[in-house]
Every structure is written in structure tokens, then in C-alpha cells.
Design a binder for these strands. Structure first.
Length: 785
RNA sequence: AGGCCCGUAGCUCAGUUGGUUAGAGCGCUACGUUGACAUCGUAGAGGUCAGCGGUUCAAGUCCGCUCGGGCCUACCA
């Protein structure tokens, strides 16, 4: 990022000098550290800030040195000349993971290579003609009959005239192009391998700056690699050696940080052999010791680790952990933790330190234990290692997670965590991944300013669906901000109505009436489900459950049901205490997702000190109270809700104006239900805004329906059934009739009766009976009307 | 080339081991405001679950194929 900024100002790190560059980088680091801290603070992250670390802190640097030296001593880190991915813009090698494959429309150039001492020519196909200047062989498949006669021959390299031997190698595909491949060991990974196998000469024609070298010849030296391509093509055409140019779509590796196409080239780098660690990391997931969530990542994990290659860990950069290697005047390598140690090992102080730094991910791989004091046996390390769960985006599964697992197993012999929860990526409006490099990030601070931290947290948590990315929809943010508003208003309302009541640490439900027992039962079940969802990392479902409970059970029903009681019109014992107690538990359940709002409100609940006198963050997370579940109360209130809802719908279907004088008839053969409904006459009147409610069968001419075993019927003054009402009722009756036909068909099926579980069959029978009864009521209503 | 994921209401998405009538939020329509909340309430409309075939008494759910979209991995130059 710093280099990017410099480039925008027309500067480079080489031009700036090492010291000034490091200074600029440190100030950049300070600035971004400040930003990140501000973001975490405003989002309400409750971290242990006393243990905040930066990768270049002394403690972590010590861990990096220790890890490097140990791996070197074990023979797992080595220095060697290999082909690597070179980023000319950054002027450094990068690892395989930092190469991004992009589909590019290019050309496939067919070039004729004359055969020495013959009129024959062979044709090779290439996408990168400029590398031709560094060719040192032509390869064929050993069994390719077309070219057997050339095995002992030599081709003459166009424009250069170099004699190229023919070699045979299995990697050559006979069907691609002409079945012959030009071999450029210095500039192509495949060719590099082939060059090693066949002892080929290796010529560097493209330099680290992306320009052609002296070895490319006087006509090309100094040209940019892409200019060189044009010129080579031009020259080939002039000489009549360019036979064909086909359009060709292929994947080209691009430097993830630099953005330009990588230039594979041979250089001396430090590598880490991770094959052994990879095998252990692979086994950890296979044997279930390490859980990936969702486990659809297991296969990807397996594939990557099973095919892992040596990790190029050196970078030709100035910012990072310097590689702890020194060279004697004789060119001998000494790896040690300190200069003194190196001098002692080498027997001389005349040492030059390796200029390179380590890939930043090398230190990141040690994070879970280096931050706790490793390699020292500290109290922190003993107390907190291994950790439990890592939550992160799947885009750094290999960059970071796999490497932490590998190094954790290697250095501590334990997994750094037992589970990895992989979240989706937050994408922008175009579905593009947000990244610093792309510059399309949304600053959480802006979202916090507009919607509040609680709404943002709730939105991100509710949208964390396994295996899915998050597209940040402003509508969702608005919706969850409204939820926060709802919580605020509901609490404010409660506080104004509960008199001297206080939050209760526990409640004896025996003395309570049905509505109170109902909401406490719903609360207990909600707490139970939320805990369950959190355990299995379904944070989205936990959020939805809480949202539904608070808004649609607590606010829409319980608080409405409680209004007559709270105002004294139909008092019930301990209503205020129950309201406050339910709010207390609800706020605590919501606190991890909406920390600011819940703390603010909770502090205002009278009696919250009995739970915790300091902060809601320190109060225990509510568990399901077994004594509160009450199926009988739930059945009662559910029936009441069903009746109320049906009456409201009926009124809507009949298009009765809100001002219409109505009489409601409720009739049921269930004595207990009848008694309960009769006792709730005031409440029903409040919920339905109907003053006249009779617990008896309706007279003829009423619009009636059956719901939850209760016949509900409405009679409006001077309101004969109109054609519209008739149509609506007929539509409803026809819908029910359709369901009856479906159920009858199912129950008439011998196979169904024989093979379906008895409970399912019985369920269908009951359902059919209910449908028939309901249909009868609807028809009666129509007949009478 | 291989692997993974997705396709369900106008939009963004749920839908556990196959089982009655496929859900939510937003949006839309109608009605509603004397005291928690219009950042609201009540009711409602809206879906051949991408398509085809198969397994099954029963498929949004399991299997196969096709189409469409995304991602990851990969040494066809």
C-alpha cells in the first residue's frame, strides 16, 4: 500500500532510500492502526486491549526468529535457485497464493523454426513470443511419431540462430498446437522443470524490472517485455517465420498486490518445505479434531494441502522481518537468532546479513501462540493456548488459517483452535469483493454513523449464512435500525407503566395467569433455541429467533395483551414484574449483537442490580429456565391469538369499516376454553375493538368461521351480506375444499396407509376432520347470508 | 481441466434428518393515529421452488442430466 501511494506521487522506494521508506511505512502503519482501532471501538468490539499486538513487536519478532531458525535446523527451510513468481512492479518474489489468475484474451503465435542442415521447418506455438529469445530447446512427446526423426537434430532459433536440441518429455501434450513446445527454462515454470530434467542451459532474457536483458540481444535489450513481444512478432513476420496468429483466451497469473502480470523467473530465494505440516493439518480435519464450519470447506482444504508445494518465504522488500541469515566472505550461509550467535557459529564477525525479508504471512502463521509469549513458557501461553474458535473470512483460509494450523501443530504440537467458522465476504453493490487493493471498501465508520453500530452488527450477523456472501443492502440496515427503535420504544413504554415493579432474578410461575406464563414459556424456549444456534455457529438463525420473539411475540402480543392489566382495567398479578423480567432476559440475549442499545436500556431497568450491578456485558447470558415452559398456557394463548387474528381477517374480508358496530359470537364445546375466553372479555374487546362479545352460538345470518376449535361469528348492525362478501367467503370455502380433496386422495391411497408412519397418517386424518368442519361453517355462513 | 456453491414472492434471502397448507425482512395494496413506537399497527395480494428425467406412498429437500450465475484450485505452451 505504501508503494502504491508512492507510485501515485511518482516515487519509488528505491528513489526514496531505505530509511525514508521505512519511516513512511511506519507512519502509514500508525495511521491505519488508528483507523482499525477506531472501527473496532465504534463497532463495540470487547477485546482485551492489553494484549493487542503488532506483527513487528519485539515479542513477535523473537518468535519469528525462533521459528525460522528451528525450521532451518530441521532442514525444512532452505535457500535455492528456483523459478518463482516475480512481481516487476513490486520488485520482489511473491508466493503462489499471491498470484491471481485472470482470463486474458491473447494470441497463440505459430512460429517456424528451421532445422539445421535441412530444408525442413518445425512449428511451435507460443503465447509469449518474446521469451523465444531465451529458448534453449524444443520439446516433443517421446511417443510422438511425427517427430521421431528429429530426435538427434537441432533447430535454429529464429532471430538469434542458436542451435536448439530436441528433447523428449512426457509433459508435452501431443494434441495441443503442433505437439512441439519451445523451452525457455528461465522464464516458464514448466520449462524450468524440463530444463532441470534434461540439463538444459538457462538464459535470462527478461530482467527483474520487466525489461529485456543484454542476453536478449542488441535489438531488444532495454525494451519493456510487452514492447519486445511486438517487436519479436514484427521481426518474425518480416522473416516469414510467423505462420499463423490465432486468438487465444488463456489464464495469466497477475500479482495480487502489484496488479501486473507476474513474470516467472529464476532467482535465489528462501523456501519452506511444508509438506509434513500440511499432512498433519489435513489429518486434523479428516479426523474431526479440527472443525471447519461450514464443512463444505473440507474438500477444498484437503485438495490444497494434498497438493501443496514449497512456500517461497523471502521477499525483496524493505518492510518486514529480516531473514536471520548471514554470509561469510567465502559465501557460506549461517542462520542464527542474533548476529553474535551467527558470528560464533561462523567463527568470524565479517558477516553480511541477507537483504531479504520474510513473507508477512510467515509471522501471521505464528499468531495464536506468538502473541501469548511463545517461545517462552509464559503464563498467558499456558492459560490461553490453545484457543477455541477462529472466526474469519474464507478468503484467507490458506493464506492464514491453514498456515496457523500447520505452524501450531509443528511448534506446539497442538491445534491452535478446535473450530474455524468461515463467514461470507461482504461484497459491494456490484457483488465485488471489498479489498484494500481494489479500493472499494466501505468504511464501517460511515455505516455506523448512518445506521448505528447496533444495526450494523445485527445486519452482518443476521446475514452470516453458511456458504453465502453478504451483499450489504441498505434496506436491511434500515430494517434492523427500526428493530433497535422498536426495542427502545417497547422498553420506554414498559418503564412508564410498571409502577414500582422490579426485575426478578427468578419467578414463581404458579401464581401467574396464562398470558404471563405464556410469555415466560416463549422466552424460555427462545433462550434455549438461541443457545443451541450459537453452539452450532448459526448466528443468523439466532438473530432471527430473537427478532421474532421480541417484535412479534413480546411487542405485538404480550405487551398488547398486558395493556389492560397495566392500566388497571383488568389487573393480573405481577404483570409489571413479568414485563421487566422478560425485558431483562431479552436485552441480555440481544446484548452480544446490539451492545450499545441493550446496555443503555438495561441500566434503566429497576432492579437490574440484582442480576449485576456493573454492566450488562458482565451479567450472565440467560439460559432456558426449565420451570417456565408451560405448554398449557401456550395452547391457551395460541388459541386466543388464533381467534383474534381470524376475527380481524373476517372483518377485513367483509370490508367492515373500523367504525362499524359489531357483535362477536364465540362458541366452543371445550369447556375450559370457553371459560378462559369468557374471562378475557375485556382483553378481547381491547384487542379487537369490539365492545359486544357473547360466549354463545351465533344467530342465523352471521358471517362465521371455525378456528382452533372455536366458532367465531360476526354480526354487523344493518349489514346484509353483500356480493363482495359472498365472493370472499366462497373463495375461502373453495380453497378449503381443495385441501379436503388433497387430504382425501392421500388417505384413500393404500400405499400411503401401509407405508407412511402412523403418526403422519393420523395427522392427516385429524387435519381432514378439521377441514371438513371448517368447510361446513363457511358453507353455513354462505347459506344463511 | 478438476472441485465447491448458488438458482425459492417484485428485491435480499431462510427452509434442519424427505411428511399435512413453502416462510422471513423489505417493497406493494387497503384500512388505521385519544398516549410506547408512522422508524408504527391491522389485514391482504404475490411463488409451475431454473428446466427435464428418476427414486419414493410422499420431493423445494435425495439421485442423474441440461441451462444460467458465482467462487476456488490447476504447469496445454
Amino acid at each position: 500500500m505504501v508503494e502504491r501511494q508512492l507510485a501515485e506521487q511518482g516515487k519509488s522506494r528505491r528513489g526514496l532510500g531505505r530509511e525514508a521508506f521505512l519511516e513512511a511505512t511506519w507512519s502509514w502503519k500508525e495511521q491505519y492502526h488508528g483507523n482499525i482501532r477506531a472501527q473496532l471501538d465504534q463497532l463495540g468490539a470487547s477485546c482485551d486491549w492489553s494484549r493487542e499486538r503488532f506483527t513487528l513487536d519485539e515479542q513477535l519478532s523473537e518468535a519469528v526468529l525462533e521459528a525460522f531458525v528451528r525450521l532451518y535446523d530441521e532442514g525444512l527451510i532452505y535457500r535455492g535457485e528456483y523459478i518463482v513468481n516475480w512481481s516487476p512492479n513490486l520488485d520482489t518474489a511473491i508466493s503462489d497464493l499471491e498470484v491471481e489468475m485472470k482470463e486474458v484474451r491473447g494470441n497463440l503465435y505459430h512460429v517456424a523454426y528451421p532445422i539445421e542442415g535441412s530444408d525442413e521447418r518445425v512449428v511451435v506455438a507460443t503465447t509469449r513470443p518474446e521469451t523465444l529469445l531465451g529458448d534453449t530447446a524444443v520439446a516433443m512427446h517421446p511417443d510422438d511419431e511425427r517427430y521421431q526423426h528429429l530426435k538427434a537434430a537441432h533447430a535454429l532459433l529464429p532471430l538469434v540462430g542458436r542451435r536448439l536440441p530436441f528433447i523428449c518429455d512426457e509433459v508435452v501434450e501431443r494434441d495441443f498446437g503442433t505437439g512441439l513446445v519451445k523451452v525457455t527454462p528461465f522464464h516458464d515454470p514448466n520449462d524450468f522443470e524440463m530444463g532441470r530434467r534434461h540439463g538444459l542451459e538457462s538464459i535470462q532474457v527478461i530482467g527483474r524490472d520487466g525489461r529485456m536483458t543484454e542476453a536478449a540481444g542488441p535489438d531488444f535489450a532495454g525494451l519493456d517485455r510487452f514492447e519486445a513481444r511486438r517487436k519479436v512478432v514484427e521481426r518474425l513476420a518480416e522473416e516469414g517465420l510467423l505462420l499463423k496468429v490465432e486468438e487465444h483466451v488463456h489464464n495469466v497469473g497477475h500479482s495480487q498486490r502489484g496488479g501486473e502480470p507476474v513474470e516467472p523467473l529464476v532467482s535465489t530465494q528462501w523456501f519452506c518445505d511444508v509438506s509434513g505440516m500440511a499432512a498433519r493439518a489435513l489429518a486434523a480435519v479428516e479426523e474431526g479434531e479440527l472443525q471447519l464450519v461450514p464443512d463444505s470447506w473440507n474438500k477444498t482444504w484437503e485438495h490444497w494441502l494434498a497438493n501443496i508445494r514449497p512456500w517461497c518465504i523471502s521477499r525483496q522488500l524493505w518492510w518486514g522481518h529480516r531473514i536471520p541469515a548471514w554470509y561469510t566472505p567465502g559465501g557460506e550461509v549461517v542462520v542464527a537468532r542474533t548476529f553474535e550467535e551467527a558470528a560464533a557459529k561462523a567463527g568470524t564477525e565479517e558477516l553480511t546479513r541477507d537483504e531479504d525479508v520474510l513473507d508477512t504471512w510467515f509471522s501471521s502463521a505464528l499468531w495464536p501462540f506468538s502473541t501469548l509469549g511463545w517461545p517462552h513458557d509464559t503464563e498467558d501461553f499456558r492459560t490461553f493456548y490453545p484457543t477455541d474458535v477462529l472466526i474469519t473470512g474464507y478468503d484467507i483460509l490458506f493464506f492464514w488459517v491453514a498456515r496457523m494450523v500447520m505452524s501450531g501443530l509443528h511448534f506446539t504440537d497442538r491445534l491452535p483452535f478446535r473450530a474455524v467458522h468461515l463467514t461470507g465476504l461482504v461484497r459491494d453493490a456490484d457483488g465485488q469483493k471489498m479489498s484494500k487493493t481494489r479500493g472499494n471498501t466501505v468504511d464501517p465508520l460511515d455505516l455506523v454513523a448512518e445506521y448505528g453500530a447496533d444495526a450494523l452488527r445485527f445486519t452482518l450477523t443476521a446475514l452470516d449464512i453458511p456458504g453465502r456472501d453478504i451483499s450489504l443492502d441498505p434496506e436491511r440496515l434500515r430494517g434492523y435500525r427500526a428493530f433497535g427503535n422498536k426495542i427502545w420504544n417497547a422498553t420506554r413504554f414498559a418503564l412508564s407503566r410498571v409502577g414500582g415493579a422490579e426485575v426478578q432474578p427468578s419467578l414463581d410461575t404458579a401464581a401467574l395467569e396464562a398470558p404471563e406464563r405464556w410469555i415466560l414459556s416463549r422466552l424460555a424456549k427462545t433462550a434455549d433455541e438461541v443457545s443451541e444456534k450459537l453452539e452450532i455457529f448459526r448466528f443468523d438463525e439466532a438473530c432471527h429467533r430473537l427478532y421474532h420473539f421480541f417484535w412479534h411475540e413480546l411487542c405485538d402480543w404480550y405487551l398488547e395483551i398486558s395493556k389492560p392489566a397495566l392500566s388497571g382495567d383488568a389487573p393480573r398479578p405481577q404483570v409489571g414484574e413479568v414485563v421487566l423480567t422478560v425485558l431483562d432476559r431479552s436485552l441480555r440475549l440481544l446484548h452480544p449483537v446490539m451492545p450499545f442499545l441493550t446496555e443503555e436500556l438495561w441500566q434503566r431497568l429497576p432492579g437490574h442490580e440484582a442480576i449485576d450491578s456493573r454492566s450488562i456485558a458482565l451479567a450472565p447470558y440467560p439460559q432456558a429456565e426449565q420451570g417456565w415452559t408451560d405448554d398449557e398456557a401456550e395452547a391457551r394463548i395460541e388459541q386466543l391469538i388464533a381467534v383474534v387474528t381470524r376475527v380481524r381477517s373476517l372483518r377485513g374480508e367483509l370490508q367492515l369499516p373500523a367504525s362499524a358496530e359489531l357483535k362477536l359470537f364465540l362458541a366452543t364445546e371445550d369447556a375450559a376454553a370457553r371459560e378462559f375466553l369468557a374471562a378475557q372479555r375485556v382483553l378481547l374487546g381491547h384487542l379487537l375493538r369490539i365492545g359486544d362479545i357473547a360466549l354463545e352460538a351465533a344467530p342465523e345470518g352471521a358471517s362465521r368461521d371455525l378456528v382452533a376449535g372455536v366458532e367465531v361469528a360476526l354480526v354487523a348492525e344493518r349489514q346484509p351480506m353483500g356480493e363482495l362478501d359472498r365472493q370472499r367467503l366462497e373463495k375461502e370455502a373453495e380453497k378449503v375444499a381443495g385441501e379436503i380433496r388433497a387430504a382425501e386422495a392421500r388417505l384413500g391411497n393404500e400405499s400411503f396407509l401401509a407405508k407412511a408412519p402412523p403418526a403422519v397418517v393420523e395427522g392427516n386424518r385429524q387435519r381432514l376432520a378439521e377441514l371438513k368442519e371448517r368447510h361446513a361453517h363457511l358453507v353455513a355462513s354462505l347459506d344463511e347470508g
